[in-house]
Nucleic acid binder design. Structure first.
Length: 561
RNA sequence: GCGCCUGUAGCUCAGCUGGAGAGAGCAACGGCCUUCUAAGCCGUGGGUCAGGGGUUCGAAUCCCUUCAGGCGCGCCA
């Protein structure tokens, strides 16, 4: 609908130019918006105001001219008015609105999708937790946002690769191996032989026990049988990584999050990519030696200080493999790369981009893109639950899913703009009431299914578009629903474009609210067969939109609650 | 001290990339079930959009600044 109207206006402006009624010859971008006030119609456009300067005419006069040039061949307009400082307000004919329901049926599960991505490759990296412990709440938010962004990109026509990157060989992993080894040998935290900054969590004991028992673990990307020898540190490391990767996989599966690629930091070293990147950076002239270390002049690319690449001890800082990894992404042909990560790592953005620019590899300045999410605080019984890895008091993602369910967890994590901090209220999440927006939306879907059931018992089947006489619909509540349905694709597109899944949750709550309101005011199944069929069809469209929207969030649409 | 994020109703938060007397949910108060799920609906009250400047025909939205909160500022990842 919005698109049709945009064309109509653009044509009108161009016709005005062609007929010499307007002089500037420059068509500004047509911004159509939905006025907050209903008296201002269904849509409003501000072109006349935007053109005022170039035309050297008052906006209202320009508006008059444009309106005079509108050629509404399809007859979608009921009224056009010029209002306020120069807005052109449009009212769409109810029949035109109702026609959009045909689209909902025709597209079915695809309703809401579009093809702005045109099948181009995009890679989304998210979670990327190191295998040193179970996934915690922060990873959960990242997983929910990242996966939803992927679903939204798929829905808007992109060819999406989901990728998980992790460090399987660095200092932290060495520390992990030492911690497991200590447990194998019966050493406890606090013991003088306990490794410095060792991982103290209970789960380390489980890893040690499994290792000593020669267990075999199969993770998505790791398959290792334990050697069982507490003196073989390398074997312990391999086993511990696989074990904890498997744990994380189970968490992710419980969350319905799946990856296409697991990328190992160690492979960057094995394939010589890290050395190659350092060489290229030295050749490009942005590197220099100082105090025994090799530095990169990242300040040339907006960083606030230069960064060390190779430490005095000869090893690399983490940011070098990071650059190598992103160069590899670029070479794999991703025109777009999106990194979803916690905002506490935001300083890596400048560094990674600076490193890539210093390569002179023709990588665009703003590549890769980032979605950063702010911290999550967990509340239970009105008190904050502290998350401390070292102390072992630990709210894991799996604990949360087990306690409140996958649907609620996913929904809550994407309910807020990633930029704002999130308070996860476990008590609220567990409530099966109107306080809980997930159930509110799901209930609308279930309610519609229940009405279907009822209709079936009375011998009425769910109708198709061609069976329904939609002119029977026309109450304000019904039209409000139809208009909301028509705006679903725009909502999805906006959410995908801005990496803002919360827009979908707000949309769904609004649509569910419109339905509940309609339901309380009207009966669907009545003696009036024509009206019954028309309304059943409207409900079918609502259910479709709810289901499709929930699917984009990875949340189920139950038929019964 | 510097960088990023945030500041909107008592609480939790939207505000469609600058539009037309500022919205939703919860909480408070008052109503609606012999009829398709009351896990629902309807109504009422509630605001210096943190403060101050600026740009603009027009600012919660953009720029500057002050204040408050969070995160980050390693030859850690």
């Amino acid at each position: 609908m919005k698109e049709q109207l945009t064309e109509l206006i653009r044509n009108a402006v161009e016709r005005a130019f062609a007929e010499g009624k307007l002089a500037s010859g420059q068509t500004p971008p047509i911004n159509i918006e939905k006025p907050a006030n209903e008296e201002h119609g269904d849509y409003a456009v501000n072109v006349a105001m935007q053109m005022a300067k170039a035309e050297k005419k008052p906006p209202r006069a320009i508006a008059e001219t444009i309106v005079g040039c509108i050629d509404d061949r399809q007859g979608i307009l009921a009224a056009v008015e010029i209002a306020g400082p120069g807005f052109i307000n449009f009212r769409i004919r109810p029949e035109a609105w109702l026609k959009t329901l045909g689209v909902v049926e025709a597209e079915g599960e695809d309703f809401g999708k579009s093809n702005v991505g045109a099948g181009q490759k995009v890679q989304v990296e998210f979670v990327s937790a190191n295998p040193t412990g179970p996934l915690h709440i922060g990873h959960g938010r990242g997983a929910a946002i990242g996966d939803t962004v992927c679903r939204l990109l798929v829905a808007t026509g992109w060819d999406v690769t989901r990728e998980f990157y992790y460090n399987d060989a660095g200092a932290q992993i060495a520390n992990l191996a030492l911690s497991v080894q200590a447990r194998c040998l019966g050493i406890e935290p606090g013991d003088t032989r306990w490794p410095l900054d060792g991982y103290q969590g209970e789960y380390i004991k489980d890893v040690a026990k499994a290792y000593l028992a020669h267990e075999t673990v199969n993770a998505d990307d790791q398959h290792v049988t334990a050697a069982g020898d507490p003196n073989d540190l390398a074997a312990i490391r391999r086993f511990a990584v696989a074990y904890l990767r498997r744990e994380q996989d189970q968490d992710l599966q419980a969350f319905d999050v799946h990856f296409d690629v697991y990328y190992l930091e160690s492979s960057l070293y094995e394939e010589g990519r890290v050395d190659a990147v350092v060489r290229r950076l030295v050749e490009s002239g942005y590197a220099y030696e100082n105090e025994g270390a090799l530095w990169l002049r990242t300040t040339d690319f907006g960083d606030d200080k230069d960064r060390v690449m190779r430490k005095a001890d000869g090893s690399y800082t983490y940011f070098v493999p990071d650059v190598a990894y992103h160069l590899a992404k670029w070479e794999r042909g991703f025109v777009r790369v999106v990194n979803e990560q916690g905002a506490d790592h935001h300083s890596t953005i400048t560094r990674v981009r600076a490193g890539l620019q210093a390569l002179d590899a023709g990588i665009p300045k703003g590549w890769p893109e980032y979605v950063l999410h702010q911290m999550v605080t967990v509340m239970r019984g009105g008190e904050e639950v502290k998350i401390s890895k070292r102390a072992g008091s630990y709210v894991t993602l799996r604990d949360l899913i087990d306690e409140v369910g996958r649907d609620v967890t996913r929904y809550f994590f994407v309910m807020r703009k990633p930029d704002s901090q999130l308070v996860f209220d476990i008590d609220l999440a567990k409530q099966q009431s109107l306080d809980n927006p997930v159930y509110y939306v799901q209930y609308a879907h279930a309610r519609i299914c229940s009405i279907y059931e009822n209709a079936r018992e009375k011998g009425v089947t769910v109708p198709e578009y061609k069976d329904a006489d939609l002119t029977r619909l026309g109450t304000p509540e019904e039209l409000a629903i139809v208009k909301a349905l028509a705006s679903f694709p725009e909502t999805v597109e906006g959410a995908a474009l801005n990496f803002e899944p919360h827009r979908v949750t707000y949309y769904l709550q609004e649509l569910a609210g419109l339905f509940h309101s309609f339901y309380n005011k009207n009966r669907v199944i009545t003696e009036d067969e024509g009206l019954t069929v028309a309304r059943l069809f409207l409900l079918k469209c609502i259910a479709q939109a709810l289901k499709n929207g929930l699917a984009m969030l990875g949340v189920s649409a139950p038929e019964r609650m």
